[in-house]
Nucleic acid binder design. Structure first.
Lengths: 342, 342
DNA sequence: CTGAAAGCGCTTACAG
DNA sequence: CTGAAAGCGCTTACAG
């Protein structure tokens, strides 16, 4: 019946199903969506016909009609780093369980990030957005609000969206506490900055470092605090700087596991033994840390992803939710820390 | 003018833009899409109005009309493993550069996988599908064909879709060759099987092992070939079995880096030194391998992801493409291999 | 419980 | 170069 044959065979439509089932389009639609107010027999009949044709309702058309997309966007700066990858995997899992698709927007570089907020490619494409460990400038937040969808942040946000995160200050305290209890007094810190991050919240981990030392009555030494770019290379650089001191520390608290891996390599190559010559602790408990016998403070990336996704689902369903959720961290003592040699 | 006010304020529509620009809907549509046949002045006027309202064309409506979704699905069993995460990151990057969204379908368990192929949640939602290192049974392939979209496989496929992959046999040969040249004769292999994989292609890596030994005139020893489940734990188990032999090998070729990490840990804990007591080589060159000083055969996950995405783009654009693309692998000699002790 | 009809927000052949 | 109109494949208030 179509006057445009080239469009005619895009596949079976609800109209076809309705016709074959001997009901109206409206009833077929209700039967397929499980809306109430259709007799069980009719529903069965319609669905049987649909089944026979391997028919599924077109999400595009359905979404257009009802005004939702059935998709959630995840905005992130990385996919291939353990924390992000694990959080993403869990997010996808939660969303899929609720029938929602996950679309990934990865802004690798500052340029990508800039263009994302200028062009807003997610506009009109998602029902909600999960912002993964991406601090937002006020301008970026303003742009994001143009999406006009629910937003939840996981870790390190600067805007005022509902969020899920660890308590970085507490995690830092746990790490420092462990070193102090072991008897260390000369404790260094290798802090990390993301060279690509335009904005970053107050660094709670380094704050924990200074506070813990102060609380223990230990004087701060400028040389013992180094700040390096993110990643194993940064950790290596930081450790090299510490080893070059006239009097190196006996222990070091490192911003995160990734950095610690680089630091451990430097120690090994320098012929130093861990933990005898240097205790090393960091934060994350990334997958490799167990293999490397690294003492660390565990944060659960998957849990954070899960809770963030669930928060977003609650917002979309207009159910109550917590604006701020802190997930627990805990010390995982392994072989890279011990009491100082003397 | 709408009779349904609750639907009225979903935002600015093309009709609003057209009205304000003083043109018809049709012309506004053409101006926004950049279709030819609109005067430059009109185009400018329409776009200016759109800009002023932060308007973008609704992908849902546009897609419904033109019959495409602007989305590509990625089907995978993992997100949080380096190979997958890197490939995915690159895929997203390529697709985003072409204005396409990436939606992830991660089937973690055999049940997830089964349900994916039964329910086909990607149906009517994507213009194409990238299957990441997921071997398909004939039945699964049959189901997938119901999606009626372009499909490209990256690594380890069993169906006959266009694909991108390394040459596993060649990679294995490179690894074995390295050990043989160093003078090893007693070479073991730790092979991996994915306990979740319903189907798996002929194992080309272990084939390379036997062939290389045969070519070198070395007799195969059953004890020297062990097969374990995937992951570091599997590698540890495999190495333990090899160490328990009356006469352990002097070198071992391991299916992939992940397994090698576990094997290295077992060696270290057993007080054995690498490479003095045992040479270790594997395939992948995952991010941690450099830190662990692991000799390996590098495969480029990002390149595979990129080429797979580009192949899919070519298919969608009806441009010529290669049905099979093999990406190169190369030996990366590091500190975990050396000539046998005596 | 069921149907006719309007509407979701676009695109595009057709006719100027 | 531009517009009126049909169509994309659904959903849902309205009226039985």
């Amino acid at each position: 019946m179509t006057t445009k044959p080239e469009r005619a065979d895009r596949g079976v439509t609800l109209a076809d199903i309705a016709r074959e089932a001997g009901v109206s389009l409206a009833t077929a639609s209700r039967a397929m969506s499980g809306a109430r107010g259709v007799s069980a027999a009719t529903t069965r009949k319609v669905r049987a016909v649909a089944e026979r044709h391997s028919y599924v309702v077109s999400p595009e058309a359905s979404g257009l009609s009802r005004g939702s997309t059935g998709r959630i966007g995840v905005l992130t700066r990385h996919i291939a780093r353990p924390f992000y990858a694990e959080a993403l995997e869990e997010i996808e899992s939660v969303l899929a369980d609720h029938g929602l698709d996950t679309v990934v927007y990865c802004v690798r570089t500052p340029e990508d990030q800039h263009s994302f907020f200028e062009r807003l490619p997610a506009r009109r494409k998602v029902d909600g957005l999960l912002v993964l460990a991406l601090p937002l400038s006020p301008h970026e937040k303003e742009r994001l609000d143009l999406l006009d969808v629910a937003v939840v942040a996981a870790s390190g946000q600067t805007a005022d969206y509902p969020y899920v995160s660890i308590d970085d200050a507490e995690a830092g305290r746990q790490a420092m506490d462990h070193l102090l209890r072991l008897g260390h007094r000369r404790i260094a810190m290798i802090d990390a900055i993301d060279p690509n991050a335009s904005e970053w919240p107050i660094e709670l981990r380094s704050l924990a470092y200074t506070r813990s030392l102060e609380a223990a009555g230990i004087e701060l030494e400028e040389d013992l605090f180094v700040r390096v770019p993110w990643g194993a290379e940064g950790g290596a650089e930081g450790m090299e700087r510490l080893l070059s001191l006239r009097e190196p520390p006996t222990a070091v608290f490192i911003h995160s596991d990734d950095l610690a891996y680089g630091a451990l390599r430097v120690l090994r190559r320098a012929g130093l033994e861990v933990p005898r010559d240097m205790s090393v602790i960091s934060i994350d408990d990334a997958p490799m840390s167990e293999l490397l016998d690294l003492t660390t403070v565990r944060q659960d990336a998957r849990l954070q992803g899960r809770l963030a996704a669930e928060t977003l689902l609650a917002m979309l369903a207009d159910e109550p939710y917590q604006r701020a959720r802190l997930t627990p961290t805990r010390l995982v003592p392994r072989g890279s820390t011990a009491a100082p040699a003397r």
